[in-house]
């Protein structure tokens, strides 16, 4: 177990190094291909004079060889003082992703503001879609062809076919603007300041995001349950004289839901990419909107930072899934 965890941790660090290296190289290569200086992309505009360009190139270290630049980027992650591009040096503590000249903020500050929004959105939606998807999928899978099954699968089909940029505005129109059931606070409400407001501000985004995943999970769960209930070991459980509940819960669901854990880990880890649309529709300033904005502004430091955070989330989620899997399925030696 300890060996497994250690080897996985080493693997994770390696993956993160590779991801940061690739991102770094891409962001270095973009200016080169465009035959301009990375300085332009770093501060988001052309420096006023050639002298300023030269001094900034030197200041950012763009006159250094690539490996040295990468190394100082990596080392800087653990804290350094960064320049704000004009005069003063800014202290940038761990985890330091550099300084956004477009926004005049430390990247870590920007990410720190966006992260709670995305995490709130992701966790709430995940809880909803797990409960919804697993319940509908299990009920359908246990009684294929029944009314519950047909209703559930029709609903799931509808839900996967409706994109969030459709369901989102429609939901807003109905529940906020027409019925007025939910407040029109246009954005995220901080949980520490107003928990009820937080909940209400996220209710529709949660539902819209969860609907899509719940539908996918319902189908996956249904087919897993259906398959598992036909396994030989379920027949053995029946042959012992066990009651239906023990057969379904202990013998059936344990096996049927295990693969869902894997998918769930990957989905949660990759959610930063998926939440972009939801965040945009509901005007939530999370990591998704932050990265969209950064792409528009050619704000390289922010993009680098968000990419590393997203990769970190994915790697961590995979790690947790692997450890969990080892506990659930004894055939996987941990």
């Amino acid at each position: 177990m300890i060996r497994f965890v250690v080897s996985r941790l080493i693997g994770m660090v390696l993956v993160l190094i590779v991801v940061s290296m690739v991102t770094f190289l891409i962001f270095q290569a973009v200016p080169l291909l465009a035959k301009s200086s990375p300085v332009y992309y770093y501060i988001g505009k052309a420096p006023a004079t050639p002298e300023l360009l030269q001094s900034l190139t030197h200041r950012f270290g763009f006159d250094q060889p690539l490996p040295a630049q990468y190394w100082s980027y990596l080392a800087g992650f653990f804290g350094k003082s960064v320049t704000d591009g004009t005069s003063a040096a800014v202290q940038c503590p761990f985890p330091c992703f550099g300084y956004s000249f477009r926004r005049n903020e430390l990247v870590s500050t920007l990410i720190g503001q966006a992260l709670p929004v995305t995490i709130s959105l992701a966790v709430g939606a995940a809880i909803l879609w797990l409960i919804g998807g697993l319940t509908v999928g299990t009920l359908s899978g246990l009684k294929p062809g029944s009314l519950v099954d047909r209703a559930g699968m029709t609903g799931a089909l509808a839900a996967v076919s409706l994109p969030i940029f459709f369901t989102g505005p429609v939901a807003l129109l109905i529940f906020v603007y027409t019925l007025g059931w939910l407040p029109d606070n246009n954005g995220y409400v901080d949980i520490t300041q107003n928990p009820v407001g937080w909940f209400l501000s996220l209710l529709l985004p949660w539902i819209c995001l969860a609907l899509l995943f719940a539908a996918l999970y319902a189908r996956l769960t249904r087919s897993n349950v259906l398959e598992t209930m036909n396994e030989d070991y379920i027949r053995t459980a029946r042959a012992k004289g066990l009651d239906r509940r023990t057969i379904v819960v202990k013998h059936g669901l344990r096996a049927a839901l295990t693969p869902v854990v894997t998918i769930f880990g990957i989905d949660i880890g990759g959610l930063i990419g998926t939440t972009i649309i939801t965040e945009t529709v509901f005007n939530l300033r999370g990591l998704g909107t932050l990265s969209i904005q950064a792409i528009r502004d050619l704000d390289l430091p922010v993009l680098l930072g968000v990419t590393v955070v997203a990769a970190f989330a994915l790697v961590i989620a995979n790690f947790i899934v692997d450890v969990l899997y080892g506990f659930i399925d004894p055939r996987v030696s941990v």
Binding site: T236, A239, G241
Partner: peptide, 20 residues
């Protein structure tokens, strides 16, 4: 009746035993 009065040894023990 099952398991108590009548019980069965199934054809393929590996798939008939629960892996978990």
């Amino acid at each position: 009746v099952r398991g108590d009065e009548v019980s069965m040894i199934f054809q393929d023990p590996l798939s008939s035993l629960h892996p978990f």
